[in-house]
């Protein structure tokens, strides 16, 4: 069964049609890279999948379960919203770390707040918090920032901030981790450290959807590439097919522009 199935997603802002029927599926452990020029709808697609925007039309299934249906006008309950949200994690282009919290607190904040809803929270508070912190420190260690865990975001470089935000997204153990141009806000010499972390996640078979402009990185890390243009998927397939032997004119034009 596919871990994610996206059906006919449409989204307009006023008269501008940004997504005009996007369909794709992905399997557990797969890394999907979305390519496309700016304005092609990549970011809007990611935002619809993470419920930061509400799609006008379409359905989203996770593990075969319908978690979003635009035709269902019934407002989901708070518990439902949270449950569907926790399927996914999102790493933003601009990090969006919480500036008043240390790196460690950024990672533990959401798990600690969510833990309060556990039935055994009152009895085991200390143990639960302890476990959350241990897990967070391990995640920060994975992204190479254990020694910076008590630093505030303003004391970290862009690359380090983005690595903290990857650890923060991982702390909720999402089924699928999304990246929205994770290196676009970074100086060129800092992109490497972030891409390295994403590569290591791919090696661990974390299911990921990545929007990026880094073609070489896409070629290395992707199991499948999706090329978007004008709100639809124009072409999809293995990296060597889409990047090296594109069938569509629009894909070729985009790749040509990038290589110049």
């Amino acid at each position: 069964m596919s871990i994610l199935e996206v059906n006919n997603i449409h989204k307009s802002f006023g008269k501008t049609k940004v997504l005009q029927g996007v369909d794709f599926t992905m399997e557990r452990g797969e890394v999907l890279v979305i390519l496309g020029s700016s304005g092609s709808g990549k970011t809007t697609l990611l935002r619809c999948l993470n419920f930061l925007e509400t799609a006008d039309k379409g359905k989203i299934f996770v593990d075969g379960r319908l978690i979003f249906d635009a035709d269902n006008k019934q407002k989901p309950s708070r518990a439902e919203i949270r449950e569907r949200q926790l399927n996914f994690g999102l790493v933003f282009q601009s990090f969006n770390l919480f500036p008043q919290y240390s790196a460690l607190e950024n990672v533990t904040l959401a798990p600690k707040l969510l833990a309060k809803e556990r039935a055994d929270f009152k009895r085991n508070k200390a143990a639960i918090y302890d476990e959350i912190e241990k897990n967070a420190i391990a995640l920060l260690d994975d992204v190479g920032l254990k020694d910076k865990m008590n630093n505030y975001p303003c004391e970290l470089s862009g690359g380090q901030q983005q690595r903290v935000s990857i650890a923060r997204a991982m702390a909720q153990d999402p089924k699928i981790l999304f990246f929205d141009e994770p290196t676009s806000a970074l100086d060129p010499e800092l992109t490497g450290e972030v891409l390295k972390i994403i590569r290591s996640l791919a090696a661990e078979h974390k299911t990921m959807v990545i929007v990026t402009h880094e073609i070489e990185f896409a070629r290395n890390v992707a199991d499948k590439i999706v090329f978007m243009s004008e709100g639809v998927i124009v072409e999809q397939g293995a990296p060597e097919e889409v990047i090296d032997h594109p069938k569509q004119e629009r894909t070729r034009a985009f790749l040509n522009k990038l290589s110049k």
């Binding site: 708070r78 949270r82 601009s94 969006n96 919480f98 500036p99 959401a110 969510l114």
Partner: peptide
């Protein structure tokens, strides 16, 4: 307060009151 702060809280599964009181309020006070 930048919109990204609310969005980051939302995708981490926080409720709107949690986002306001745990993420945004302190930054507003400052």
């Amino acid at each position: 307060i930048p919109k990204g702060q609310y969005e980051a809280g939302q995708v981490l599964g926080l409720t709107k009151p949690q986002v306001f009181f745990k993420v945004v309020l302190f930054q507003v006070i400052k």
